[in-house]
């Protein structure tokens, strides 16, 4: 099973033509092919079926398959656009494209909004932000009094929720992020700029003459 080269073509569930994926994303054809090497490695780490399940995703992130993590789980769910419980190669490339240094700020802002909108209502609500703060505190074993957490939430929603309706909509988020650009730091992965250097073996399997 898994992803195997066959007559120069790769047999893999959800595999898409690198030329097509490059046309839809910031990546060059060579970069898409290099990402396939990364994808193969992650998707075969637990079950060699050519798809990344949540356990494999967490294992790749933390090198620890048992770790439960709200944030990693949320990222996985956004990568899994077809809601199949697995990430195929096309999902993987299109999602990572958002994290490319050259991808537009607008795309990054929109993705980050969805990241924090845990229940997909189209709004970032106070209880969602509190849930994430508590998860982070649990992850780091850091302790903060509930009054401190509420004070942080008050301050945040005072700044971000400009119409003061208790929730942050996309336009409020866009404005808030423009005043706090450091919030987008997590949306850019410098590794993606050098992906062909990091995974040079793609050259041996390349299906195109030029990239």
């Amino acid at each position: 099973m898994g992803c195997v080269p066959s007559k120069g073509r790769r047999q893999c569930p959800g595999y898409e033509d690198p030329v097509f994926l490059a046309s839809q994303t910031t990546f060059s054809v060579s970069e898409v092919e290099a990402l396939f090497e990364l994808f193969k490695s992650i998707s075969s780490s637990v079950i060699d079926d050519g798809l990344i399940n949540k356990e494999e995703f967490v294992l790749a992130l933390f090198k620890n398959r048992k770790k439960e993590n709200l944030f990693a789980s949320r990222i996985f769910d956004l990568f899994d656009v077809k809601h199949k419980g697995v990430i195929d190669f096309g999902d993987f490339v299109r999602a990572l494209h958002i994290f490319h240094p050259n991808t537009s700020l607008e795309d990054k802002i929109n993705f980050s909004f969805r990241l924090y909108d845990l229940d997909n209502t189209g709004f970032i609500e106070r209880q969602e932000v509190k849930q994430m703060l508590l998860a982070l505190l649990g992850e780091s074993e850091m302790k903060l009094a509930d009054e401190t957490i509420e004070a942080i939430l008050d301050k945040t929603f005072l700044e971000a929720d400009t119409n003061q309706d208790g929730k942050i909509d996309l336009s409020e988020w866009q404005y808030f992020v423009s005043k706090n650009p450091s919030l987008l730091r997590i949306m850019t992965l410098p590794y993606l700029r050098d992906i062909t250097t990091a995974f040079p073996s793609f050259v041996f399997y390349s299906e195109v003459d030029e990239a």
């Binding site: 990364l38 490695s41 992650i42 790749a60 992130l61 933390f62 090198k63 993590n69 709200l70 944030f71 990693a72 789980s73 949320r74 990222i75 990572l96 994290f99 990241l115 924090y116 932000v129 994430m132 703060l133 998860a135 982070l136 992850e139 401190t148 004070a151 942080i152 939430l153 301050k155 945040t156 700044e159 971000a160 706090n180 450091s182 919030l183 730091r185 997590i186 992965l189 590794y191 990091a198 995974f199």
Partner: peptide, 25 residues
Amino acid sequence: LNLNAFDIISLSSGFDLSGLFEETD
């Protein structure tokens, strides 16, 4: 504490995808 909640949340290791690119060879 001068940080907003999102500054704090973005420190989570789960939002840092760098791990995907490490130790994969």
